[in-house]
Design a protein around this nucleic acid. Structure first.
Lengths: 265, 265
DNA sequence: CGGGACGTTGACGGTCGTCAAAATTAGTGG
DNA sequence: CCACTAATTTTGACGACCGTCAACGTCCCG
């Protein structure tokens, strides 16, 4: 069945109002209009309910765009911090390394999400951001963000919320890493991914993983073999169909039950 | 030996310039001067290099103080978010809970550290902050912080750094939870605690744990028995002395070696 | 078509969780 | 101040879960 499935990670018709294809497709990159005010991702990465005067100001936070090829890095641990980055297209992972070479994926980021917050404290980045597929980001110089957020209250509040959201997200990952078993971790991972994709107009039940089993494992605190085995177990149980990186969720409730085991009376 | 040790977690003479005993001890709590400008913790929770005009403004971010008894909560998951809190005295843990009752300690906070950042995104707190000993905090209403940080650039930058620091800290915990073994986790935990205590004028080698083995375990993603066993192993190896919650580090380098195993040629 | 990256599966072992009991300490009320 | 109970900690025995190592299969790309 899965082999004849329509390509996933394409917006469903029901959500066609939110598309993530670049605007002004045929325009030369050099003359491409760089503006949040008419960006179809605005509701994801910018505050709502702005006056048109404020919208004009907001446009100034994006200085330029930058393309990153699959496998390329947006920034690296140790590099000077200058900007935050909003993803327009593509998919990233962020990872930290310990001194002895251990590596840990700290998150996967998709369109509309912001990267680079780690660099603010020490004026240098403390993790790597690697594109898992060809990507394009909006470059937002941080001093410009700070300047503008002094004038536009909604932007100030928005910046604070984005940082707080990241803190809360990481709290959730700590809960996962600290107290869940392999099946629970993978179930939580799939549900989280599919939920975020759905918010962007993709299917609730079908997704294409942009990362390897090893990267999933690193994120979840598991070895790649365990990730693979757990996928196989889900398939046996009829909860998902898996064909390489194509995953179809057959029974969302069963996935949620793994996370929240039903109490037996 | 340990039983005759001088009480720990008291500032060393060499660092007497930084004390964390409350100023104006005998003053009635109701008339107690609430001001950052003459707080001896300022260098920990406020920006440096302010003009005196700016300092006067900064004093306004602290609306009041609040005492929390041991075991009491400063805020709880679900409560409305209004303020950030800077710890003046005492020791806290923050913890998140999953729907099925699982509990995860996400951090331990001490004097000069700021709590409550999790509440900004949704205007409600998403974790509990529990005092592990009698504590006092400065209450900083967040709308006042936002207002002032529009006027005082250094405060704006400071707020951003505090949030970024928390993100980076949590990245480190994710690395720990995702890729370290029990001994490495406990070693990292002890080194981190003692380093933060040292920055506050306490001993580099001696500390009093304010939390139970179970709370340490929850933070480190281990069961309390494993924490206890790992402590015992460190004692056998002559790396630390442990008497209940009193810990003396006998060999800091050995602890660091556990984290960063030496490469054998 | 061939090489390399990626994924799957099996066998086995180690680390850590579980359960249980005992020791030590802390807290409470008389 | 002491007796008593509750809470915390330690230690042991055992087993489950997941990591390790290895072999094989699959897919992708030039």
């Amino acid at each position: 069945m899965l082999e004849h499935a329509t390509p996933t990670n394409k917006p469903e018709d029901a959500h066609a109002s939110i598309t993530i294809t670049p605007v002004g497709g045929a325009v030369s990159p050099h003359t491409m209009k760089v503006a949040c005010s008419n960006c179809n991702l605005r509701e994801l990465c910018m505050p709502l309910g702005l006056s048109s005067a404020e919208l004009d100001k907001i446009d100034d936070v994006v200085a330029s765009r930058r393309k990153v090829k699959r496998g390329g890095t947006l920034f690296r641990n140790g590099e000077k911090f200058t900007s935050l980055y909003a993803i327009r297209t593509g998919f990233f992972k962020t990872c930290v390394a310990s001194e002895d070479g251990r590596d840990q994926v700290t998150g996967f980021q998709m369109a509309g999400e912001v990267m680079g917050l780690d660099g603010i404290v020490h004026d240098h980045h403390t993790c790597d951001a690697v594109a898992l597929e060809d990507a394009e980001v909006c470059v937002m110089p941080f001093d410009r963000i700070e300047e503008l957020s002094r004038e536009v209250n909604a932007l100030q509040r928005h910046v604070h919320k984005i940082m707080s959201r990241e803190i809360v997200r990481e709290n959730g990952v700590m809960l996962l890493l600290g107290s869940m078993r392999a099946e629970e971790r993978l179930a939580a991972f799939l549900l989280n991914l599919v939920q975020r994709l759905h918010a962007r107009g993709f299917s609730q039940s079908e997704l294409v993983l942009r990362m390897t089993r090893e990267e999933i494992g690193s994120y979840l605190g598991l070895k790649l073999e365990t990730v693979s085995r757990t996928f196989s177990k889900f398939v046996e149980d009829g909860i998902v169909e898996v064909k390489q990186r194509h995953v179809r969720i057959l029974n969302t409730d069963a996935l949620k039950d793994i996370l929240n085991p039903k109490v037996c009376n």
